[in-house]
C-alpha cells in the first residue's frame, strides 16, 4: 500500500508548506492516532488504517474520502451496503462501466433537473 502512504505524505507536506498545522504530529493528533503510527502509515510500513480513520484523514487533508479509501484498497461501507442490496445488478453495472471514458460515466450521474423559469 505504498501509494496510499506516499499520497498522504505528499498531500500533507504540500499543505504544511503554507500552514504549519499540517505537521505530522498535529495531523496525527487531530485524527486521533499516534504520530509514530501515522509516520509508519506514510512510509508504507504498516497497512492503511481503518475506514473511520481514513475518512477523518481525508477530511483533514481536504480530499474526497472515496479517493483515499480506494488508494487504501477499501470501499466505503455505504457503497458496500449499496452493492449488497443488489449485488448482481451493481456487479454487472460496474463491469460494464469499467472501460467507459469519464464523460460517459458522468452521463449516468443524476442531474439536477432544470425546468421552465
Amino acid at each position: 500500500m505504498d501509494s496510499f502512504g506516499a499520497f498522504v505524505r505528499d498531500r500533507r507536506e504540500a499543505l504544511r508548506q503554507t500552514d504549519r498545522r499540517y505537521s505530522l504530529r498535529q495531523v496525527a493528533e487531530r485524527i486521533g492516532v499516534e504520530p509514530s503510527y501515522l509516520s509508519k502509515v506514510e512510509r508504507g510500513e504498516v497497512a492503511p488504517p481503518s475506514e473511520e480513520t481514513i475518512v477523518r484523514l481525508a477530511r483533514e487533508l481536504d480530499v474526497l474520502p472515496d479517493v483515499l479509501l480506494a488508494l487504501a484498497g477499501k470501499v466505503s461501507s455505504d457503497l458496500l451496503d449499496t452493492i449488497r442490496k443488489r449485488p448482481l445488478l451493481f456487479g454487472q453495472l460496474l463491469r460494464e462501466l469499467r472501460d467507459l471514458p469519464d464523460h460517459a460515466v458522468l452521463r449516468l450521474v443524476r442531474e439536477v433537473r432544470d425546468g421552465d423559469w
Binding site: R110, V112, R113, D114, G115, D116, W117
Partner: peptide, 20 residues
C-alpha cells in the same frame, strides 16, 4: 434536496421550475 423527490408535496410552480 431535489424538488422532483417531493413532487407531490411542493407547490406546482416548484415542479415547473425544477432544481433543488
Amino acid at each position: 434536496a431535489h424538488v422532483d423527490d417531493f413532487a407531490d408535496r411542493v407547490p406546482g410552480r416548484w415542479r415547473e421550475h425544477g432544481g433543488v
